[in-house]
């Protein structure tokens, strides 16, 4: 009797034990994009994004810990201007050149961070390191929204998390000094992420 009771107690406690363990997630590349904003000639905001991203999340909501690792192929950047028209080159071609992202020499940029603040079960602040153009500098991301749950597209068979995070950095800190001023030094980031539990 005692043995059956303890087995039952263990079985009942199992889901909680599982929830407390760190869980690993893989980025959903079809619903995850890093966007970037710069100010052009002090007037309009030019927004672009990278079309591909890969990475991993590890979350432990019970222990309020989490890490994220993202890798972005820089050649996938797009600002919606890929047609040079009557100009020597399009804006996207220029952004891929050594004047800006230098994608031939630095084909990827990456971010590694740790969730340091939480609001309930959701990470609120991620402190980490951005590596761009071979330079690694601190970058803090603020998580604007975050939700985890069963994926409705698979009738709940898959479990996933997703949300948005924002941050900003000065591109000159990473050696991207070309026409700082006419194109703002500050680059604002807006990252949308969805990730499936492994």
């Amino acid at each position: 009797m005692s043995s059956k009771f303890s087995t039952g107690l263990f079985a009942a406690a199992l889901p909680f034990a599982a929830a407390a363990a760190p869980e690993s997630f893989t980025i959903d590349a079809y619903h995850s994009f890093p966007y970037f904003d710069t100010v052009h000639l002090g007037t309009s905001v030019i927004r672009g994004r990278f079309e591909k991203i890969s990475g991993k999340l590890v979350l432990d909501t019970a222990a309020k810990t989490g890490t994220i690792e993202l890798t972005v192929p820089t050649a996938t950047l797009s600002t919606g201007d890929n047609d040079k028209g009557s100009r020597p080159r399009s804006r996207d071609e220029h952004l891929r050149s050594p004047d800006f992202f230098n994608v031939a020499e630095f084909p990827t940029m990456s971010y590694k961070g740790t969730a340091t603040k939480w609001h309930g079960d959701a990470p609120a602040t991620v402190e980490g390191q951005l590596t761009l153009l071979g330079v690694t500098k601190p970058l803090t991301l603020t998580v604007e929204r975050w939700k985890c749950g069963p994926d409705p597209r698979t009738q709940g068979k898959r479990y996933f998390c997703g949300g948005n995070a924002t941050g900003a950095f000065n591109r000159s800190d990473f050696g991207m000094k070309f026409i700082v001023g006419p194109v703002s030094d500050e680059v604002k980031l807006w990252i949308s992420v969805e990730a499936f539990r492994d």
């Binding site: 004047d99 070309f178 026409i179």
Partner: peptide, 9 residues
């Protein structure tokens, strides 16, 4: 270089 998208070079 300018025609090849690099104003720096």
């Amino acid at each position: 270089a300018i025609l090849g998208a690099s104003l720096t070079y």
